[in-house]
Simulated assay, not measured.
Amino acid sequence: MEFVFDARMDGVRRAHWWRWSDMAGVDLYRDRMVYCGGIPYQGGRRAVVDRGVLSPTRDRLHLGTTKMTDAVLDRFLKDLRRFGADYMRGYASGCYLLARRLLDRGETYPLKAVLTSSDTLYPQYREAMTEAFGCGVFDHYGQNEDSLTANECVAHTGMHINVESCIPETVDDAGESVQAGVGRLVSTHLMNTTMPLIRYAVGDRGELGPFDADCPCGRHHQKLLNLDGRDDEIIETPEGARVGCGSLNQPMKHMAGQVGASQYIQRADGGLTLRIVPGPDFQKDATCAALARAVQEHLESAIAVDVEVVDRIPTRPNGKFQFIVRES
């Protein structure tokens, strides 16, 4: 599907980005930004992806996320230091890989803030970025169609929905309203009159907070309290349970030193393959057995779990990381 925006809607989108930057404490127009995501362009053409690309105004540094090997990450870190960034914005997985590489090298790089979007910000991503960059991490929720957008504030207790521009709802699989708890997110956009989207299913599952709830930051927007993953990022157990990616990082939560990165593959036969990149404390037999057991216990299921050890987990062609892959 192709989405159409007019000039007014483009201004609304920019206002949402400005609010996000303001919540994070950075100046959208004065601070120097490094953007970590996608494929950089230079002179209207795709640039190489193994080095940073400066914007024409020389106040933005673009780091591509489609080829983040250790050698490329080391080159990116040199570019980052040479550029002198004030803050970072980009894909959560790409920003995390930079942070993880810094920590693996025993280094840090101070920033005002890290602003993440586009793919899921897992707790271990946030922890690594906070340690590596010495600052807060502020997540943004949105889609290409901008039907439902929300920004994280300094309280880090959910994301404030941009309620001036949309009416969010949660529904069950039959399309009936869900009054409490996690449901499928749908939204009616109030600003894009060129292509109105009414009760549009954004493809994610999540939970909405109450209206007019107080937040320590002083704002009173309704919040998006949690995201449970995309509809196509759901594991189904033999017992009939459906589990989203927001929960599936839990088995690795206490194994950070043993597991550097992970990805679930739900095979066509219904079983799971858990791909992992070894961490510094990895012990092959013990770690793999503990992980398989932890996944089954977390899912409360007898589902078959195989653990596959890999050097790296590739991103999709757009540079984003996919935590759950479903084989057809």
Rank of each mutant, 00 (worst) to 15 (best):
E2I: 02
E2R: 03
E2S: 03
E2C: 01
D6C: 05
R8C: 01
G11K: 09
V12S: 07
A15L: 11
A15F: 02
H16M: 15
H16F: 13
W18K: 14
R19A: 12
W20E: 00
A24L: 07
A24N: 01
V26T: 10
V26L: 04
L28I: 14
L28Y: 07
L28C: 05
M33D: 00
Y35Q: 11
G37T: 00
G37A: 15
G38H: 09
Y41F: 14
G43H: 09
G44Y: 05
R45W: 10
R45P: 02
D50N: 15
D50R: 06
R51H: 14
V53A: 00
T57G: 08
T57K: 06
R58E: 15
R58M: 07
R60E: 11
L61T: 03
K67E: 15
A71S: 12
L77D: 00
L77S: 02
K78Y: 05
K78V: 15
D79Y: 09
D79F: 08
L80M: 15
M88Y: 01
R89G: 10
G90H: 09
Y91N: 11
A92K: 06
A92T: 08
G94I: 12
L97G: 02
R101Y: 03
R105A: 13
E107Y: 07
P110Y: 08
P110G: 06
L121T: 06
P123Y: 10
E127R: 15
A128I: 09
A128W: 10
A128H: 10
M129G: 03
M129N: 02
Y141C: 08
G142F: 08
E145T: 06
D146Q: 11
L148H: 03
T149M: 15
E152S: 02
C153N: 00
A155F: 07
I161E: 08
T170C: 08
T170G: 00
V171R: 11
A174M: 07
A174S: 12
S177M: 09
V178K: 04
Q179R: 12
A180W: 08
G181H: 02
V182F: 01
V182A: 03
R184L: 11
L190M: 12
L190R: 15
T194A: 14
D204S: 04
G206S: 01
G209C: 04
F211I: 10
D212H: 14
A213F: 00
D214T: 11
D214E: 15
D214I: 06
C217H: 06
G218E: 06
R219L: 13
H220F: 11
H220T: 14
Q222E: 10
L224N: 04
L225K: 09
L227Q: 06
E233P: 02
E239Y: 00
A241D: 14
S247W: 13
L248C: 12
Q250W: 07
M252Y: 14
G260D: 03
S262T: 05
Q266I: 06
D269W: 11
D269P: 09
D269Q: 09
G271S: 15
L272N: 09
T273Y: 02
T273W: 06
P280D: 06
P280M: 04
Q283C: 09
Q283Y: 00
A289Q: 13
Q296E: 04
E300N: 13
E300I: 01
S301D: 01
A302V: 03
V307N: 05
E308Y: 04
D311W: 02
P314W: 02
P314S: 05
R316F: 00
P317H: 07
I324V: 15
I324P: 03
R326T: 14
E327S: 07
